[in-house]
Amino acid sequence: MSVQGTTLEDVFHQDISHALWSAKPIDEDPEVIISAHLAFLRAGADVILTSSYQCAYTTFERARYTQDDARRIMLKSVQLAKEARRRFLEEPLAASRDVKIALSLGPYGAMLYPAQEFDGFYPPPYGPALSPTQEKTNAFDDTPEGKAQEQAAIDELAKFHYERLCTFAGDAETWNVVDFVAFETVPLRREIYAIRKAVERFGGESMKPWWISTDYPGGRFPETKTDGGHLTATDAASAALLDGEEAAAWGFGINCTGLEFLPALLEEARPVAKKHLEKHGKRPWLVLYPNRGDVYDPVTQSWRESSGQGQKWADEFGAVVLVAIAQGDWEGVVAGGCCKTGPDEIAALAGEIRTRI
């Protein structure tokens, strides 16, 4: 599986330091989006994510687009992935490939500036109201009032995610192209609940296969507890797969996280996969797409490069994937790369996995 945002910057020399991030070239330079998709497909990716991660009416409004233009560009992101797949499948070496398209939907925090996927500091009504003298927190008070505010935040976040789902599904030609729906880089448990609520309202069990992918900067889930510490991957996986009565996610994921943290995080999530089997009679899928190891500063929008690139990254990540498969807790594993992983890393990963399964 491939994510193309930073590849547009690194390989195709696009300036994506913009409110729309990788969505900006959809309208201004669609051929570069197609080229990025093709680069990953030729490297061995079987799933490509649309360049719609930061596409939402609020982000387009901030970038001074009309609602009609926003909708048009959002739908176009899917059609560009479809065109890339069409071109690729006409190539001689692609005859036997089954290429899938995943609709990329970022969290509410990706629509903020600075982006808040890694901290989860959402403004009211999506997060707690704080006075200038209060320490920053992403947790509501553990009081009746705080719990009521948290439920109101879940309702508002559900509206946000439902609106985007309806935009893509409202156009049959676009929706028919989508094979998976990927809710990515979700930093808060309440947003996981909100996504499930949105999917339930949208159609629940009739939804296309969909996953909720969470992120762990520094190895920790961003949401804090009111009494200190952070929620865990167990908490995040339970929110996606077990808690409540809304439709459970088809898959649980970890993305935009350092590779070195995956083994411990997966050990935390494994018991939830077992309970999912007991509750639903089927195993969930696991979706893993860690970063290459570079560290991102959301304020300066710059990266500090790591040494774990290419084959080294693929060797280490491939070993993690093979262990997850062998343990048998998941129905299957979708594996790929997130920020700063490019076609070279995906080619190495594809070679590593396919020669060892």
Results as ranks from 00 to 15, higher is better:
Thr6Tyr: 09
Asp27Phe: 12
Asp29His: 12
Glu31Ala: 12
Ile33Tyr: 06
Leu38Glu: 08
Phe40Val: 07
Phe40Glu: 08
Asp46Thr: 14
Thr50Ile: 03
Ser51Glu: 09
Ser52Glu: 01
Tyr53Pro: 00
Glu61Ala: 13
Arg64Tyr: 13
Asp68Cys: 10
Asp68Val: 14
Arg72Pro: 08
Met74Gly: 14
Leu80Gln: 09
Ala81Phe: 11
Lys82Ile: 10
Glu90Trp: 10
Val99Thr: 14
Lys100Ser: 13
Leu103Trp: 07
Leu105Thr: 11
Pro107Glu: 04
Tyr108Phe: 14
Gly109Gln: 02
Ala115Ser: 14
Phe118Asn: 10
Phe121Tyr: 15
Pro125Phe: 07
Gly127Asn: 05
Pro128Gln: 01
Ala129Asn: 13
Ser131Val: 05
Gln134Phe: 00
Ala139Asp: 06
Glu150Thr: 04
Gln151Met: 11
Leu157Ile: 01
Phe160Gly: 07
Tyr162His: 12
Glu163Trp: 08
Glu163Ala: 14
Arg164Pro: 06
Cys166Met: 15
Asp179Gln: 02
Glu184Pro: 00
Arg189Gly: 02
Tyr193Asp: 05
Arg201Gly: 00
Ser206Trp: 00
Lys208Thr: 02
Gly218Cys: 04
Glu223Cys: 05
Glu223Tyr: 03
Thr224Met: 15
Thr224Gly: 09
Thr226Tyr: 07
Thr226His: 10
Gly228Thr: 06
Ala236Arg: 03
Ala239Pro: 06
Glu246Lys: 04
Glu246Gln: 05
Phe252Trp: 04
Phe252Leu: 05
Phe252Gln: 06
Thr257Leu: 01
Gly258His: 08
Phe261Lys: 10
Leu266Cys: 01
Glu267Leu: 08
Glu268Leu: 05
Ala269His: 02
Ala269Ile: 07
Val272Ala: 03
Lys279Trp: 03
His280Lys: 07
Pro284Ala: 07
Leu286Lys: 11
Gly293Ile: 02
Asp294Glu: 08
Ser307Phe: 13
Gln311Arg: 13
Ala314Ser: 10
Ala324Val: 06
Ala326Val: 06
Gly328Tyr: 04
Glu331Asp: 11
Val334Pro: 02
Gly342Trp: 00
Ala347Glu: 10
Ala348Trp: 01
Ile357Ala: 10
